[in-house]
């Protein structure tokens, strides 16, 4: 059984079918890059995996937790997968440390001292142990995104979903975030990332998924997908981005 099993998933917004039957299995420790044009459904797919979007057909399960619409199932699923957003979404009224502590204390009922210890450990892991008491608006975009990663890691998920996590960053800040992601990948964290960082995808990912018009159009190891694209759509897409 795979860690993440996505089976025949369909999703429509009104009359517009965005996902037209997606099948994807992810093994533990895999790093998957999802690439494709905007509107191809890649972000929607990611958002379906932790239940931020409901699906119209098919099934998704992560490490035994099944996607369903009730809060109990959703909570179980969301405890398995962490999510990092393009816009960081740190809580502005809480310090970096409190951002990392909140869900541990509220969702897992972790006592404060342990939550604090975990927060320190996770902030250290992303290189921001010294920013424990800083508020989000005192941090750069890259630092905010690293806090967001620490916040997701503190819940000890089995997989992380990264939705264009470097797209809102200034070019010089992209590398510090990618370095953290690379570190996680090397430690064996399962990652699904929607990204436009083709070089990163090529260097770090175990498989690349090219989405086109709501379908997995091409899938394979990065060497194959980037070196020898089989479909004209992928060739065209890669031609545009290189």
């Amino acid at each position: 059984m795979s860690l993440i099993e996505i089976t025949e998933v369909r999703k429509s917004f009104g009359d517009n079918e965005v996902l037209k039957g997606i099948d994807l299995n992810v093994e533990p420790g895999e790093v998957i890059a999802i690439i494709g044009k905007s509107g191809s459904g890649k972000s929607t797919l990611l958002r379906c995996i932790n239940g931020l979007e409901t699906i119209n057909a098919g099934s998704i399960q992560v490490a035994g937790a099944q996607l369903a619409t009730d809060e109990l199932h959703l909570k179980a699923l969301r405890l398995k997968v962490g999510m990092i957003f393009q816009g960081f979404n740190l809580f502005p009224h809480k310090t970096a440390g409190q951002n990392v502590m909140l869900s541990q204390m509220v969702v897992k009922k972790t006592p404060k001292p342990q939550a604090e210890e975990m927060a320190k450990k996770m902030l250290d892991r992303v290189g921001l142990g010294h920013k424990f008491d800083a508020y989000p608006d005192q941090l750069s975009g890259g630092q905010q995104q690293r806090v967001a990663i620490a916040r997701a890691l503190a819940m000890q998920p089995v997989a992380l979903l990264c939705d264009e996590i470097t797209s809102a960053l200034d070019p010089e800040l992209v590398q510090e975030v990618l370095a953290v992601v690379k570190e996680l990948a090397s430690e064996g964290m399962t990652l699904l990332m929607v990204t436009h960082e083709m070089r990163f995808a090529r260097d770090v990912c175990s498989r690349v998924v090219f989405m086109h018009l709501g379908r997995v159009h091409e899938i394979g190891p990065p060497g194959e997908v980037f070196g020898n694209p089989k479909t004209p759509e992928l060739r065209q897409f890669l031609g545009q981005t290189h």
Partner: peptide, 18 residues
């Protein structure tokens, strides 16, 4: 409140009320 704040809370496992 931006949608992202809600989604960040939900994806950390917080219920709607939380």
């Amino acid at each position: 409140t931006t949608k992202g704040q809600f989604e960040a809370g939900w994806s950390l496992g917080l219920s709607r009320i939380e």
